[in-house]
Each structure stands twice: as C-alpha cells, then as structure tokens.
Design a binder for these strands. Sequence first.
DNA 1: TTGAAAGCGCTAACAG
DNA 2: CTGTTAGCGCTTTCAA
Lengths: 336, 336
Amino acid sequence: MVTRREKTVTISDVARVAGVSVPTVSRVITGAARVSDDKRRRVLDAIASLGYRPSAAAQTLASKRSNVIGIVTGNTSRYGYAEAIRGVEEAARANGYLSFIVVVETAEPDDVTAATDAVLRQSPAGVVVLKFDPPGVAALAALQQHVPVVALSGVPESGVPQAVLDESHAAAALTRHLLGLGHRTVHHVRVPPSGKEDGRTSGWRRALLEAGVDVPPVRDVSWDPATAREIGRDLAAEPDVTAVFCGNDETAMGLIRGLHDAGKRVPEDVSVAGFDDHPLAAMFLPALTTARQDFAELGRHGLAQLQALLTGAQPLALDTVDPPVVVRESTGPVAS
Amino acid sequence: MVTRREKTVTISDVARVAGVSVPTVSRVITGAARVSDDKRRRVLDAIASLGYRPSAAAQTLASKRSNVIGIVTGNTSRYGYAEAIRGVEEAARANGYLSFIVVVETAEPDDVTAATDAVLRQSPAGVVVLKFDPPGVAALAALQQHVPVVALSGVPESGVPQAVLDESHAAAALTRHLLGLGHRTVHHVRVPPSGKEDGRTSGWRRALLEAGVDVPPVRDVSWDPATAREIGRDLAAEPDVTAVFCGNDETAMGLIRGLHDAGKRVPEDVSVAGFDDHPLAAMFLPALTTARQDFAELGRHGLAQLQALLTGAQPLALDTVDPPVVVRESTGPVAS
DNA sequence: TTGAAAGCGCTAACAG
DNA sequence: CTGTTAGCGCTTTCAA
C-alpha cells in the first residue's frame, strides 16, 4: 500500500532549477507572454525533471479565473442524465476544463441553496445545468445571477442560453404515427415532468387536438419501470386503449411487460411507443417504436454554448435538435 | 439574460461588518478554535447578511487541505459505472465533499498521464477510482503513489484499499444454477474485462471445472448490445448451445434478441442468464435470470473506505459484497 | 479568546 | 523579453 505524499514541487523550485524568475515560469506555463526559446526550453526541462504540476487552487486564487466547470443536475445515473453528463464532460475535457458534479436532490430551498453554494465556492468558469426536472429548474434560477450558466433542456425557453432537444415535435410525430395506424386516440403515460408540462406531453396533446380526437387523461409514473408495469396491467383491462405513447423507453418496456402480464400482446392488441431510443429499445421484444434523443450531443452543444458565453463570442443561435422518429415493432395497425 | 457577476464578498468584508479580525471569522467558519458567543453571533450575522461564501481556492491554498474528491473512471454513463458514481457522489456529499470527475479514455500512457495530472492539480483530499476496466487499472496504478486512493472493483485484490463486489461467487452460482437445470455445459459471452480475466468469467470457469464439464470457448462482445445480438444469431445455429451465461444484462438482452431473430426461443430452446440485475432485467420478455449487483452501494462503501483512510481510522476490513442470484424467466430446464 | 504578522503557490502589473 | 514587487482570500503561527 504505497500511499505516500511527496513534498509538493512548486513553481519556485522550477524557477530555481531552470535559473529563471518565477514569473517567467508562469509565462511559459500559461503562455501569457513570450519567453525566449532558450529559457522556455530550460523551464520545460525543469518542469519535466521535477514532475511539476501547477496548483489549481493557487492559479485560481491569483488569476481569479478557474478552469473548472460545474455540472448541476437532479440525477446522475438515469439514461438521459448520464448521457448528457457524458457529453458535457467530454466537451469540457476537450476544451481544457475539469468538470465537477453537484446534485440537487429536490427543489426545496435548502437543497437548492446547498447546491448553489457548493458550485459558487469553487469559482467555476461556468456552469451547465440539466434542466430536466424541478430541482434543475430551481438550481438554474438560483445560479443564473451569479455565474455564466447554460441550460440543457427539452423545451425551448427564453431568458437563458441553452441547448435544447425539441421533444414536443417528436412527441407529436409519434402520436400522429399512431393515429395514422388507425387508432381512435392515443393514451399517454407521463414520466416525472420538469415543470407543469413537458414537451413530450404537450406534443402529444397538440397532435391529438389537431386531429380532433379525444384527449384521454394522462397517467403518471415514477422513473422506476415497475410503476409503468402496474399501469400496463391496469390498462389491459380497458378495451378502448389500443395505443399508448410513453414518456420514455424504460416506461414503455415496463408498460409492455405489464400488458403482457395481463395477457395482452403488443402490438397486436395494443400499440406502444416509447421515447429516447434507449440502447435497449431495439433489443426489446417487441423492439420499440420511439424517437431518438441524442443526450450526449445535447451536452456537447451545451458546453459549446458555455464556451461562446465565456469567450464573449456571439451567443450561438438557439440550439435546437429535432429527435427523429424510429418505427420498429411495438406499434401497428389497430386490431380489426 | 441576467448573467452578471457580483463583486466577491471576502472574509475581510465579513470581519469588518462583524467588527472582528479576519482570523476570528476564519475560526467560526472552520471551527478550528473557540470563539466567544457574542462574536460568533456577529460573524454569523455578517455572513448571512452579506451572502458570504468562502473561496475554496483560497482555503485550499492556505490550509493545504481540500474538500474535493476525485472520481476517476473509464466511463460515466454505462449502467454499473453511472450507479457507482452516484453512490460515491452521494456519500461524498453527505460527508461534505464535492466530487469532480476525471475520465480516462484508454490505458495509453498519454491518457493516463493527462488524467493523473488533472486529478493532482486539484489537490483532492482523496480519489476513488473505478477499477472496472484497463483505463481504470492504469489510472489506479499511477495515482496510488501520489494521493490517498481507494478502488472500486469486481475482484478482491491486495495492495490498495478497496470496496469490492464479489462477482466470481455469483457467476459461479449462476453457472451452477444452469447446470442444475440439466444443461450439458454453459457457454459464456464476456463483456470487456478489466484485466486478463474478470470475476464473472473466472467464476463461470471455476463452476464448470468443478462440475467436470467442458469449458467452451469464450465469446467476446463490446458494451453495445447490438454486438451481443450478432452473437445470438450465430449461436442459434449451434444446436449444442442450450445455456449461455452473459457478462451483463444488456448483453443478455441483446443475445436473446439475436436468438429470437434466428427463430430460437428463450428459455425453451436456450437458457440465458445475465448479470447485474439492471432495472430493465425484470421487464424484459422473458424476464432475466441474473445476479443483483448494487453498484451504488459499492460506491458508498468506497467512499467510506476513503474516509477511514483520510481520518487515519483503522482501514475498514476488505469490503466484499456477494451479489445474490435472482432466478426469473430466461433460464429453464434443458429441452428433452 | 483574540489580533498581528506571515505566508500558501501563483499571476498581474510595472519597470527596464 | 525578463525580473521585481504586490497581492489573490484564506489559515496559521505567535503573542498578548
């Protein structure tokens, strides 16, 4: 168990070994000013031979700029969240930033404040918040006035730089797909929304209204697919339910499982569409009809927005991506 | 777009408003020494009214101690990884630490060095590395000598404080379960291993050897379930393959999908077991027989180990958890 | 208990 | 181009 801490090598050690002044070492490290080739080389050699690593804390304190960015989120491990975080982190790393994670458990003031404080204490260059749920929404509001922030979102909104995946368009398309198959209407199982209504739900509603068909009551589920399974069992008892649009693929899988438990077949008896195009959506039996969401790409766009914000470049145009619909096996014509 | 930066409130502002010296403010913040109730109260009031937030950079620089911990990993979004990260982050937050993420793309020296440098520059209090893959293994080795580290792992190993989920035991149990069902032998589809052989594979091999049956060649897949689907199609053509143990649930789902594509039924024609008990494992049709792994708990244990290491407490006993086997629908007796 | 003084390791002016 | 001089915001001696 070799866990020994070596005495830290500082910039002045490097300066001494290289035979130059401390600021000169600083200059070659930061590239803030030109240094003669000769000295630069000596500094570089000294850095290499000493294994010198600048202290982020000292740099941040002295320069009042840091190279860390904060990722604020209500969750870290669920599919869309984890992928978005991956996208942000990848892009951040590619741009020389280090990412730290701050999770906001709930939208309660205490949690939001704790998260805000944790973020601000690090004096991050900027922050990306996953505005996917109420905690995210609350954290975004609290952070906005203190530090450069960009939001990752499912619905376009003004007031904050953001990258958005336009869910409502795809939700409407999926709903129309189902209607086009001959279903009288489309039921909707909603995953926990970020606000009063998400793009997925509003797109579904809009498509129904435009088609002039009934808008059945929404059913809510938690993120746990087991709750969707319950709903599936319930729905199996309602003969007029022939098509269901689910808020995400995990929910669709749970729902299908529940329908199956109750003896219903998908898509023969009821058609089910998911959302996201989860990596397992195509493996499921039946393979899910869904809308592909590229959360990692969303995260990358978010970081690009932040970069633009920080460098004072033109704020990028509102970054909207339309998730494409992918039709597979879980939806089909209404039984005759 | 309200993104204005306020002038930072510093500790001396607080001192002035409270009518005390700077060190006194520091004392009430850190609790490093006793302060009279009167002054403490005034300081607290000043902090509240000014909205003061200590600068992490300054604290770290002055005290040579930080309250951030690093999470080093080869991946952030795959199921087991994301869950483990969640566990570490939750426990870290509960203990007052902020987590930053450093991903090591490959085990190549360049990537490992870049990651190591990024970690060390932050002068973290400690680091948790997910030793789930070659990048993790390499990063662990590089970090060990510089900073307190604990590893999260699937196989017990000495030389480093670690939290482990004993995969080999569960893999053997799963294999025996299959053998007990009457299968002549059990084939194995392996997910990318962390070293030359993972606990999942060695447990499977051991169970086969102990039972005195043939050890069929291992098939490798990538993390993408689509590759497992290919293998499933191939395996469908081999009549002697009646039982398959997969390295994880996503792979099992892909494999089952592939078998299904080729007209085979699970478990009637071939039994398939997964590993992890992914949230969708129970929803799948057929529901997966698997071994439950609590990665989030693993992460929490890892942080507890780190805490012990940092506080100089007795190093916790080697933290091993046996994943329980859960039998569902995807495995059954061999066809007669 | 408290304040004064002295840095932590680095960058930012400022002369030259 | 380069060195000198001042700090950044905080904690840590050290006296009092």
